[in-house]
Amino acid sequence: MGNSYRVALAGNPNTGKSTLFNALTGLRQHTGNWAGKTVSLAQGNVLYKDKTFNLIDLPGTYSLFSNSNDEEVARNYIVFEKPDVTVVVLDATSLERNFNLALQVLEMTKNVIICINLIDVAEKQGININERILTNRLGVPVIKISARNKKGFPMLLDTIDRIVTGAIECVPVQTTYPDDIEEQIKNIEPKVSELIGNRLSARWVSLRLLDGDEKLLNEISKRFGQKEGSE
């Protein structure tokens, strides 16, 4: 289908990600309050304007360094299945920990929306979030919602729509690391680039190789080793 797009939902556990998923898709699915609740990926469709957004609820994880099976599932989906948009759902009351995951996603893929949930709870606790400043610092749209009260959905859907049509261009601002690490990245990034082309972010792959991510290594050899012939 020409106007069907895949939208992945990533986020920490306890951020209301599944609540958002359920509210948007209407799919009957139970929402959990702890890590690793949704292991087999739930999917559901949202109709918006003339388009269909196929939402994929990724496992809730604290990071995407593939420490666990869940993290690997979420990471592999974002990197290899290449959803048209990745929405990172954040808990407005614990943004510091939640940004950690969002920043990792920004290194892996381009079309990202930072979706700050539980905004009603945060406002009650006196937390005022300036999404303009955050958008500016991150280079991707930042949207405030309350999935519980179904607030902010039009804005979220409209932003997804504008990203897939190309009306908004995401330019994720990359995290810079201490000089020695940047030096190492510079060293191997060109070689990574040569090997994998623009199928993955070369900077990100370099970083993962430096970090000794064998699971990613195996995944790359498996996927790209096979694909070469069939494509």
Binding site: Y62, S63, F65, N67, E96, R97, N100
Partner: peptide
């Protein structure tokens, strides 16, 4: 190992 990495991820 895993415990260290998990603690790092949690902040």
């Amino acid at each position: 190992g895993v415990m260290r990495r998990r603690l790092l991820d949690l902040g």
